[in-house]
Amino acid sequence: MKVIVNVSLKAGVLDSQGKAVHHALESLHFNNVSNVRVGKQIIFNLDESDEKKAMADVTKMCEDLLANTVIEDYAIELIK
């Protein structure tokens, strides 16, 4: 299956890149934008057919490496 992990700064943690992007969008006259967050996406294939097992594996990957849970949240998407 295909795995997509989205990592972004936690809600309470100031996202300077998001702020800079927001300002840039405003300077392009997109004045209807708010709450911009910049994150990263990690995509890979996982050789695992059991969804439960896959979720457990990817969660462990996120906790150990893909996200720094002191400052970041992660969201996992599994695509069969």
Partner: peptide, 10 residues
């Protein structure tokens, strides 16, 4: 403890 983020000024 803690973590180091991107500088506020980028």
């Amino acid at each position: 403890p803690g973590a180091l983020k991107r500088n506020e000024s980028l």
